[in-house]
């Protein structure tokens, strides 16, 4: 098991390197001076600045400097907020905000998406072709609707209904439990639907498999049958789906942070893009990619752990 994790870890490093290289090249091969947009600077100051940011060196040396900084946890300096370190923006001291807020939002959403999806899929799969067939139909229609409605629509709509009209939840902010409810539900909703759909068809397939027939022949009750015998194999496709789900939830969190004014790195990303703050956006792209890659690694390990047929 340990060597398996090590080997997977070895596979991650080239991907990570590729991410840094591609995004770095994208930024630095773009014509234009990062300081040209500021008010006209005297040539000697400009030269000084270029030297300070290693911009007077060849590209590959700049890249090595950047890589060295990254390895030491230094994300560089924001162009918009002169002299501000990006580390300070992403991991603010004292006040709440930045990276960990986004990670919290994402984590809660994944948990809700997983639990919600599994519960709905059990109801859906087990009521198919029975007297309670309508439950399956309702859930299927719900999934189709939710999947076709982008977060861009559901997020403001939920604010309009539950905050403006009904006053059940606050329209935005971060900190209390009630602040969490709307953003987390809205962000996880499409993935609840996706997981339900995938898990439903997989559970239906498993429930028809010979080993479930064997378990029935042993006289096991329905709950035990589902819980002990069907759920784990039926969840395997869902586990392998978690990687892309995380990428999607992180992407969606940018919209959610904007609509619900949550002070995460998604908002910084959008502001950086609007202000054309290359360095900030570059750093955030690398952070988001790192999150996705690390999570995909975790998913692979969990999958190998759950599937007895995979040898480490």
């Amino acid at each position: 098991m340990f060597s398996y994790i090590l080997r997977r870890l070895g596979g991650v490093i080239p991907t990570l390197f590729a991410v840094v290289l591609i995004s770095f090249l994208m930024v630095h091969m773009t014509p234009g001076d990062p300081f040209a947009t500021e008010r006209a600077l005297p040539p000697e100051v400009l030269k000084q600045l270029h030297h300070q940011y290693h911009l007077d060196l060849p590209l590959w040396q700049q890249f090595l400097y950047y890589l060295d900084d990254l390895i030491h946890g230094n994300l560089g300096y924001s162009l918009k907020y002169q002299g501000q370190s990006i580390n300070h923006l992403v991991f603010p001291t004292g006040s709440q905000g930045g990276f960990w807020v986004s990670v919290q939002l994402g984590t809660f959403s994944i948990i809700i998406a997983g639990i919600g999806g599994i519960i709905l899929d059990i109801f859906s799969a087990l009521t198919k072709d029975t007297l309670a067939d309508f439950i399956d139909h309702v859930i299927s229609v719900f999934c189709m609707l939710v999947i076709s409605t982008p977060i861009v629509v559901t997020a403001p709509l939920s604010v309009l209904v539950f905050a403006v009209f009904l006053h059940w939840f606050p329209a935005g902010g971060w900190g209390t439990l009630s602040d969490l409810v709307l953003p987390v539900i809205i962000l996880s909703l499409p993935y609840i639907a996706v997981i339900t759909q995938i898990a439903r068809s997989s559970l239906i397939e498993i429930m028809g498999s010979p080993f479930i027939r064997t378990a029935k022949a042993k006289g096991l009750s329905m709950p035990r049958l589902v819980w002990r015998h069907a759920l784990k194999p039926a969840m395997m496709p869902v586990v392998s789906l978690l990687g892309p789900t995380v990428a999607g939830i992180l992407t969606g969190s940018v919209v959610i942070e904007r609509v619900f004014t949550i002070p995460g790195i998604g908002i910084q990303m959008v502001q950086g893009a609007t202000n054309r703050d290359y360095n900030l956006v570059l750093a955030l792209v690398i952070i988001y990619s790192l999150l996705v890659i690390v999570f995909n690694l975790l998913v692979d390990i969990i999958y190998a752990f759950l599937d007895p047929k995979i040898r480490y």
Partner: peptide, 13 residues
């Protein structure tokens, strides 16, 4: 007892 033991035993248990 069923016909095919490979599919009749639960591979995950």
């Amino acid at each position: 007892i069923f016909q095919d033991p490979m599919t009749s035993l639960n591979p995950y248990v």
